[in-house]
């Protein structure tokens, strides 16, 4: 029922950056910092001296002390001409136009919703950027404004696309597609945003009857598979179905598949494995082969074996 563990013992090698074995040799070779060695492969430690401020301009994630550019975060170095910046490994989501995100409504305001999207500021979903009942193209009326909570209310999850940015850097998102909108029939898993790779499609269907929506902001929606021809709003927009809060009937097999996929995602995130549809599919097959319980993959040894199996050359 309950099991105890110890906290991991702290390693004492502060100031040493751990690198991937593939680049470890390259890193060891370049002891002298010159312009060439600031490759994007390198990882930095906070406080690590990157280069001289005489030759480079400091960008995000760096600061200058004694004419030296020093990294303020752990991350990868990015160099654009003479501008040097560090992109942090653990950070909030940096939105870009066209990204697919999964968000949660934080606030309902006049003519807009504020959406928590794991970004520095809440995203804004304008009333004019959602599909409304009674035809896709129509003017927003005062009555729509009064019943905004019937579309989305606080806590609701939705999938949307980044449309534009405001002057203060907040993103504006939209759900004007039949693929986007309110989420149901499943559960949310949160991972660091850097782990979500850009894919051809972020709507993934696994053969175990599970749909995944990999939001680029690190929110992943794991839900029961909905057949394409049953998707809401196929013929004429059915607002009742699109903004419904009611789940479909979900059988036990699907439930356990959803739980298993969620646990796999959590485990892969723990070991910092970038997530793609191929990786997830392979991991799921591996877990089914092991014939373990749904929660087994959260154990340390099983998790390590899974990551080792995924990394094994074929």
């Amino acid at each position: 029922m309950i099991s105890f563990a110890s906290f991991p013992t702290q390693t004492q090698n502060y100031g040493i950056t751990k690198h991937h074995p593939d680049v470890q040799d390259d890193v060891n070779m370049d002891i002298v910092f010159d312009e060439e060695d600031l490759s994007s492969k390198r990882l930095t430690c906070p406080g690590e001296v990157l280069t001289s401020s005489q030759t480079f301009m400091r960008g995000h994630g760096t600061y200058v002390v004694d004419e030296e550019v020093i990294s303020s975060v752990a991350g990868t170095i990015e160099k654009v001409n003479k501008l040097i910046s560090v992109r942090a490994v653990r950070t909030r989501y940096n939105p870009e136009v066209g990204d697919l995100i999964v968000g949660r409504i934080a606030e309902v305001q006049p003519k807009r919703w504020k959406v928590d999207a794991n970004s520095r500021q809440d995203a804004v979903l304008m009333l004019s950027s959602v599909n409304l009942p009674g035809g896709v193209q129509r003017r927003k009326l005062e009555s729509d404004e009064l019943q905004m909570r019937t579309f989305f209310e606080e806590g609701d999850l939705l999938v949307a696309e980044v449309q534009a940015f405001f002057a203060d850097g907040a993103m504006s998102i939209h759900t004007r597609s039949l693929k986007y909108g309110k989420l149901r029939n499943g559960q949310l898993v949160v991972v660091p945003p850097v782990l979500i790779r850009r894919l051809k499609s972020h709507f993934v269907t696994l053969p175990c009857g599970v749909d995944l929506i990999l939001g680029l902001n690190g929110y992943i929606w794991v839900s029961k598979h909905v057949k394409d021809n049953e998707q809401e709003g196929e013929e004429g927009f059915d607002a009742e179905a699109v903004y419904s809060n009611r789940n479909d009937a979900i059988d036990d097999a699907t439930r356990s598949a959803i739980a298993r996929v969620s646990n796999i995602i959590r485990t892969l995130a723990t070991y910092f494995v970038p997530l793609t549809d191929a990786v997830l599919l392979e991991a799921y097959e591996w877990c089914v082969e092991q014939e373990g319980g749904v929660a087994d993959v959260l154990q340390q040894d099983v998790g390590e074996a899974l990551v080792a199996a995924l990394n094994a050359p074929r």
Binding site: R104, Q187, L188, G293, L298
Partner: peptide, 23 residues
């Protein structure tokens, strides 16, 4: 929490073979 998440958790608790979000 959204209403559908809530319903999902509650339905899972009351089902004959209860299973939680993390298995």
């Amino acid at each position: 929490i959204s209403k559908s998440e809530k319903a999902y958790i509650q339905a899972s608790l009351l089902s004959s073979n209860p299973l939680r979000a993390d298995g």
